[in-house]
């Protein structure tokens, strides 16, 4: 159940999304995830549970991974947002995206954007991640296919690729 946009008067906000500033008017009860998906057409950020449990809507807000279904759009005023679309491109994947591809760290793929955004946050805290740390680190992201084994491998590989210590990994 998502809150509708039928609130009272709209509020003017400025949000920088994937490096591009947007001046928008939003209803006060608009969620950040709704702003991204429905106002800006960035549908890579998914709505899974809409109760801040599954993490499919994870984005970076001022550099930190947060669940965008639990943030109001107006709370992102004057903030920087990074979504999966801003992380890499088809021709130039981010190392974490490349690692997910190399390790086949997805089954249906629904949780993948949120998993990758959280994995990047985790890798920014430490490049040397053991399996336990990764499993604890992604506890706010649910994979309903239960494909965690390859996800854990991908996060470890992506973290080391981000640190530049394993740049040849996907050629091996």
């Amino acid at each position: 159940m998502s809150m509708s946009d039928s609130g009272s008067q709209s509020i003017a906000i400025t949000v920088t999304v994937n490096g591009e500033p947007h001046h928008l008017r939003v209803a006060p009860n608009t969620l950040l995830v709704t702003l991204l998906r429905e106002h800006l057409g960035l549908t890579g950020t998914h709505v899974g549970c809409d109760t801040s449990q599954c993490g499919a809507c994870t984005i970076h807000l001022d550099g930190a991974a947060v669940k965008s279904c639990a943030v109001l759009a107006v709370q992102a005023d004057n903030c920087e947002v990074l979504t999966i679309e801003g992380l890499g491109s088809i021709d130039n994947l981010h190392p974490m995206q490349q690692a997910f591809r190399d390790c086949h760290a997805l089954q249906c793929g629904f949780c993948t954007p949120g998993m990758i955004m959280q994995a990047v946050d985790l890798a920014q805290q430490s490049s040397d991640l053991d399996a336990d740390t990764i499993r604890q680190g992604i506890e706010g992201n649910l994979c309903r296919c239960t494909g965690y084994q390859n996800i854990v491998e991908a996060v470890a590989k992506g973290a080391s690729m981000m640190a530049g210590t394993n740049t040849l990994a996907h050629e091996a």
Binding site: S52, L61, V66, K67, V71, D121, E139, G140
Partner: peptide, 9 residues
């Protein structure tokens, strides 16, 4: 507390 995304916020 909670998970990483919750602790960030």
């Amino acid at each position: 507390i909670g998970d990483n995304q919750v602790r960030n916020r």
